[in-house]
């Protein structure tokens, strides 16, 4: 029995978004889309989160912050980059302080296109991320089992 798919908790971080994508992310929580139907909770705590959902590109100031948030999340975890800014830097790419997309700093699993990304697309991205999350969990428990077996044989 796997529970991970049924209870993904999301940490939402605004890297340097124009706030357009953030409003769409929050729209997912409203009665119209109500992502809590799928057990999704918007948590403010990286240590409780399974999915890191980032809007906007990386700038030189939040580079260590994003790294830190990612590293504080317990395994298995996935990262979703929402909007073109998060994917490549978007229209801000030429700015002096923008480093680029989220994948310049941490590995990204799902890219949600759009400027701004629509709530339907974001939900779809989360569903895609759940499949990857499940894969990672299987790998993790598989590795743990192998380690335990190796430990027994020695």
């Amino acid at each position: 029995m796997t529970f991970l798919k049924r209870s993904p908790w999301i940490l939402h971080y605004d890297a340097s978004s124009c706030n357009g994508c953030d409003i769409e992310v929050l729209a997912c929580l409203t009665p119209l889309y109500d992502v809590e139907r799928f057990g999704i909770i918007n948590t403010g705590n990286p240590k409780h989160a399974d999915i890191l959902l980032i809007t906007g590109g990386i700038n030189s100031q939040n580079r260590p912050v994003v790294r830190n948030l990612y590293e504080q999340m317990p395994e298995p975890k996935v990262v979703i980059a929402v909007g073109v800014c998060a994917a490549t830097g978007g229209i801000f790419r030429e700015c002096y302080n923008i480093v680029g997309g989220i994948d310049k700093v941490i590995p990204v699993d799902v890219y949600v296109p759009g400027c701004a990304a629509r709530p339907e697309q974001i939900i779809d991205g989360v569903v895609k991320a759940l499949a990857i999350l499940e894969e990672k969990r299987e790998k993790m428990t598989g590795e743990a089992r192998h380690a335990a077996e190796a430990g027994e044989s020695t």
Binding site: T2, S7, E36, R37, D50, M140
Partner: peptide, 28 residues
């Protein structure tokens, strides 16, 4: 709570899924 807020809300068994998931996670 969800119904009071005009939402559909999670399945009744959601708390069990949540706790089940927490036990699947890495222990930090």
């Amino acid at each position: 709570t969800a119904r009071m807020q005009g939402r559909v809300g999670p399945p009744i068994l959601q708390p069990f899924y949540d706790v089940g998931k927490l036990f699947e996670k890495e222990s930090v």
